[in-house]
Design a protein around this nucleic acid. Structure first.
Length: 465
RNA sequence: GUAGGUAUAGCUCAGUUGGUUAGAGCAUCAGAUUGUGAUUCUGAGGGUCGUGGGUUCGAGCCCCAUUACUUACCCCA
């Protein structure tokens, strides 16, 4: 006998959990559609070459590679070709040519390039699918998890950024979660890098700055030194490390930012973009989300070039450090696939993390989680005919109904209905057959009455109180 | 990749300086109640104490190894 198990970081979802997960997905999907995004799905596997090099060295390591089919060892040249050194990289390229998707953005870029002639730009698409990462699982981190992405590609307009901010606000408002939407602009960070004479190290600088709230100012400076940033350059960055998130950009902030970026064109553009978004959010305020500019927000993914977003939980009751959502503008994601100058901006919701947070805050609504409305109890073959007819009628009226299939003790049948949280149980025994009526019990309060079929339909449709 | 923690019934966990037959709650099943769940009462089943070795008269407990799980770091949703 094999002891049943599932691989590390993988999870089953029980019916109860699926009810909760669907609640989240439905809200997100509904918002996506409301904002005019169109659905798209891509396969679980992509060519390995599509994925590698897009997520940095760290990301490449976390891609799940799929072994080639057949006798892949026979086909390798490693044993016959003595000039080829046996390294992980060399072996890998010969035995694996496809991999599980690591996120939804890169497959989307690949799709856009492949279908560029049939797509109407600007293209707004949403995609809700699992992604896989060979990460060490821990709290809030899984090896298989769902991303819910919305991207607009083929438009440079800042209105897209603003729409995504509204979309974030819409989703988290409807989920009942208090969040803060943090925003920054990679152009400002690039401007700073250029000004301090370290343009080549933008990624190193952003990655280091991104760790600020975790490891503190001193350690960030240490890391910058290790990355080979000149001491005088680090001195110029130091004021940035004392930056505290703000909710509006006044004159004081502008002056401060201008000093940090010097006179760099790109830095100035970043500041301008930021100002437009803040102006918009004062004209059309967000429903519940707090909107913050955080100069120290960097985000690791290195394809971002403009605005970057991150959503964090803003609840006093619980601590949850991971981000619930994130995204940004990427100017040239499709360039690597041979389609340059196509700008896009997108966001991604982490459904699994949202689940964990809603669970901890007990914010899942009780209703809607079980969709079965009524169970017809089984009283034996004499009544089965009538029961099945009623079952058919109920379903014709769009009511989710089940018939207890086995002729067992009534007690057991009620226990079953109770365990499944089915709100109504219908009883049809000899007495009911004689009267041509049915008895219906409301499980929440124990009330039971004998009624006509029409009355039952009205009750189950909620038109009776 | 680095560093900790945990492993005892289906689940959550007790288990005294190492001492005789390893416990509780929940869950399951049966009954009190032959047409009624959630409450109450009674009873029952369920364990090679993760695995392998060592110390000891004696190990769930101490030591070593190993595996699995888990948390933090790195990175990220």
């Amino acid at each position: 006998m094999i002891k049943p198990n599932i691989p590390k970081g993988m999870r089953d979802f029980s019916p109860v959990e699926m009810g909760k997960r669907n609640y989240i997905f439905n809200i997100i999907r509904n918002s996506f559609q409301k904002f005019g995004f169109l659905p798209l799905e891509t396969p679980a596997m992509e060519s390995l070459s599509t994925l590698t090099g897009k997520y940095g060295d760290e990301g490449d390591r976390l891609i799940f590679k799929v072994l080639n089919s057949g006798d892949f060892l026979e086909k390798t040249t490693l044993r016959t070709d003595p000039t080829k050194e046996i390294t992980v990289q060399n072996v890998l390229t010969q035995i694996s040519e496809k991999a599980l998707r690591y996120d939804l953005t890169v497959p989307f870029a690949r799709y856009v390039v492949m279908h560029r002639h049939e797509i109407n730009f600007p293209f707004k698409r949403y995609q809700i699918q699992p992604v896989w990462r060979a990460d060490r699982p821990q709290k809030g981190r899984y090896r298989e998890f769902y991303q819910c992405d919305a991207d607009i590609i083929g438009s440079n307009s800042l209105w897209n950024e603003f729409e995504l901010i509204q979309l974030l606000d819409d989703v988290f408002t409807r989920l009942g979660l208090k969040v803060v939407i943090k925003i920054n602009n990679r152009k400002i960070l690039s401007g700073i890098a250029e000004y301090i004479g370290a343009s080549g190290s933008v990624t190193d600088i952003t990655v280091a700055i991104d760790k600020l709230d975790k490891i503190g100012k001193e350690k960030v400076i240490e890391e910058l030194q290790q990355k080979g940033i000149m001491p005088e350059a680090i001195d110029k960055i130091k004021p940035l490390l004392d930056f505290k998130p703000i909710t509006a950009i006044g004159n004081e902030t502008s002056t401060y930012l201008n000093e940090l970026i010097g006179n760099t064109k790109i830095g100035q553009k970043g500041i301008d973009e930021l100002k437009v978004l803040f102006e918009q959010t004062t004209k059309i305020p967000l429903q519940t989300a707090r909107f913050e500019f955080d100069l120290t927000l960097a985000r690791g993914l290195n394809y971002y070039t403009g605005a970057i977003f991150e959503v964090k939980l803003n609840e006093e009751k619980i601590k949850f450090s991971g981000s619930l959502s994130g995204g940004g503008r990427y100017d040239d994601l499709t360039g690597i696939f041979g389609l340059p100058n196509l700008s896009g901006v997108g966001i991604s919701f982490g459904a699994d993390r949202i689940y964990d947070v809603l669970e901890e805050l007990q914010l899942f609504p009780d209703d809607r989680l079980n969709h079965i409305k009524v169970m017809i109890a089984n009283f034996g073959s004499d009544t089965t005919g009538f029961c099945l007819k009623l079952l058919y009628t109920l379903r014709q009226h769009g009511i989710a109904a089940i018939f207890y299939p086995d002729e067992v003790k009534i007690k057991k049948q009620f226990e079953y209905a109770h365990a499944l949280k089915i709100p109504f149980v219908v009883i049809i025994g000899e007495e009911e057959l004689k009267l041509e009526k049915i008895s219906v019990k409301t499980m929440s309060n124990g009330h039971q009455e004998t009624v006509s079929v029409n009355h039952l339909l009205q009750l189950l449709k909620g038109t009776l109180i």
